[in-house]
């Protein structure tokens, strides 16, 4: 045991990555990635376009298997063969496109693929009353107040939709919640609303993986920051070890940004 992060005094993290790597043919998409996700904490994965964030999500959510390194769940190594395996292990992913059907009612979307039923045999039916009521309650518990669970998801704002997707994952017992760029398409106010629900999920003991390219969204809510650049880790920091400016600088490629700043400066007249 290399003892990354964990100690004798702490229980093992919910999810841990050790030196994980992934290749697409001869292209190294991800290499040497290590970080931890703990219950009731938010681990932010920061990186610019092409940094390997999507590949990391796919490994965590069971779409891809890592070619190198280890994935540990509750301290035990695991290998997910399919997204279903990850879901069964309590790892829920909320994708950018949300996996919601715009023309369908909120409560129908909420239970899509996991509809509660009553009755037996040919009379087994979708328990609409329960689904509607449970949706309303689950949203209310997360502090989400929607006018009417019967309205189509398409009529919700982007922030509201993200919130419903988060509430859905939490309701279905997610222990680890992976959020793929939940704030990228949103305005400042809407992004704030979504981050508040991320904090809600965290406070309910869920381990959150927040993937973003925006350090201003990541810093206030994050407990741990994993920085990616072109498939490699620039480090995994706890909140106390790094400040917001440092995060921004690292994300933009550190020295590259310094160079750019220098170039853009007005020449001394």
């Amino acid at each position: 045991m290399s003892g990354v992060g964990g100690g004798a005094t702490q229980s093992p993290p919910l999810l841990e990555l050790r030196d994980v790597g992934k290749d697409y043919g001869s292209v190294i998409a991800l290499d040497g990635i290590s970080t931890t996700v703990r219950a009731g904490e938010v681990t932010c994965v920061l990186g610019d376009n092409g940094a390997g964030k999507s590949t990391l999500i796919k490994i965590l959510s069971g779409v891809h298997r890592p070619d190198r390194g280890e994935l540990l769940l509750d301290g035990r190594p695991v290998a997910f063969g399919a997204p279903r395996d990850a879901l069964d292990a309590g790892i829920a992913t909320v994708y950018q496109d949300l996996a919601m059907i715009p023309l369908m009612a909120i409560w129908r979307n909420f239970f899509l693929g996991a509809e509660p039923t009553r009755g037996w045999g040919p009379f087994r039916r979708f328990d609409a009353a329960t689904a509607r009521e449970t949706t309303r309650r689950a949203l209310a518990e997360m502090g989400i107040d929607l006018r009417d669970p019967d309205q189509p998801v398409g009529t919700l704002s982007g922030g509201e939709r993200q919130s419903v997707a988060i509430a859905r994952a939490v309701h279905f017992g997610a222990r680890v919640l992976i959020l793929d760029e939940p704030t990228s398409a949103l305005g400042v106010k809407q992004a704030g609303v979504v981050l508040r629900y991320v904090a809600q999920a965290r406070d309910r003991g869920v381990g959150v993986v927040l993937i973003t390219h925006n350090p201003h969204h990541a810093y206030p809510v994050g407990d741990r920051f994993l920085l990616l650049n072109r498939g490699r880790s620039l480090g995994s920091f706890a909140k106390g070890e790094v400040d917001r400016d440092e995060l921004t600088r690292l994300m933009a490629g550190g020295a590259e940004l310094d160079q750019l700043t220098h170039e853009l400066e007005r020449p001394p007249s």
Binding site: A99, M100, I101, A114
Partner: peptide, 9 residues
Amino acid sequence: GDEVAARNV
């Protein structure tokens, strides 16, 4: 409504 989204869930 959205086959890909449906499959994802």
